[in-house]
C-alpha cells in the first residue's frame, strides 16, 4: 500500500524534489572531488551517493543555485567582476586596518550605520552580506529584509554609507535584471 502511494506521488517528486536537489547535489559532488582528489570509480561512486543524499536533504529548503547557474550569460562576467572587486578591497581595507593597528594614534571613525538595499530575495541578500562583510572595513550586524535595510558596523564610517553595498548591488543587478526583487528566494 505504501509502495503504491509512493508510486502515485512520484510525478510530484520528479517535478519538485529532484530540481531542488540538483544544485546542492552538484556542489556536494564538486566538494567531494576537491576533498578526495582521487579519480577512481569507487571514489566517484561514493561521491555520487553522498551528493544525492545531501541534495535530497537540502531539497526541502527550496531550489538552490547549481554550478551551471554561474555559467549563464552575464553571470560569469559579473562573478569575475565581483571576485576582482572584493579581492581588491579586501587587500586595501586590510592594509588600512593593519596600519591603524600598528599606529594607534591614527584616527578611528568606527560606528553603526543603516543603509538601504535593493535586494529582496534570500540569494541576493546573502551574496551582498557575504561580499560586503568580507571587506574588513564593514561587518553586517543585522538586516530587515522586509524594509530593505542593512545594518553595518564600519571601521571607517564613509561620508556616504550607501557606498558600502552600492557597487556590489550594481554588479549583482546585471546578473538578474528582471527578477532581483521578486522575493522568490530561489534565483
Amino acid at each position: 500500500m505504501d509502495a503504491r502511494r509512493r508510486w502515485d506521488r512520484w510525478p510530484s517528486v520528479r517535478r519538485e524534489t529532484l530540481p531542488r536537489a540538483a544544485g546542492p547535489a552538484a556542489w556536494t559532488f564538486l566538494a567531494w572531488v576537491l576533498l578526495t582528489w582521487e579519480f577512481t570509480a569507487e571514489q566517484l561512486l561514493i561521491g555520487v551517493v553522498v551528493a544525492l543524499a545531501s541534495g535530497l536533504l537540502f531539497a526541502p529548503l527550496g531550489k538552490g543555485a547549481g554550478p551551471w547557474d554561474v555559467l549563464r550569460p552575464g553571470r560569469l562576467r559579473a562573478a569575475v567582476e565581483l571576485a576582482g572587486y572584493t579581492a581588491w578591497w579586501i587587500v586595501v581595507a586590510n592594509v588600512r586596518l593593519a596600519r591603524r593597528v600598528w599606529a594607534p594614534s591614527r584616527p578611528l571613525r568606527s560606528g553603526m550605520v543603516v543603509v538601504p538595499t535593493r535586494e529582496r530575495d534570500d540569494t541576493g541578500l546573502t551574496t551582498v552580506a557575504l561580499l560586503t562583510s568580507m571587506i574588513v572595513d564593514n561587518q553586517l550586524a543585522d538586516l530587515d529584509a522586509r524594509r530593505g535595510l542593512l545594518q553595518y558596523h564600519a571601521v571607517a564610517v564613509p561620508d556616504r554609507p550607501e557606498t558600502i553595498n552600492e557597487r556590489v548591488e550594481r554588479i549583482l543587478e546585471r546578473t538578474h535584471p528582471d527578477d532581483h526583487t521578486a522575493g522568490t528566494g530561489d534565483s
Binding site: S110, G111, M112, V114, D142, D144, R147, L149, V157
Partner: peptide
C-alpha cells in the same frame, strides 16, 4: 561601542 564611535544607527523596531 567605544566613546569615540562616530555614529550609532540601528534598524527600526519590528
Amino acid at each position: 561601542m567605544w566613546r569615540g564611535a562616530v555614529q550609532d544607527e540601528s534598524l527600526p523596531q519590528r
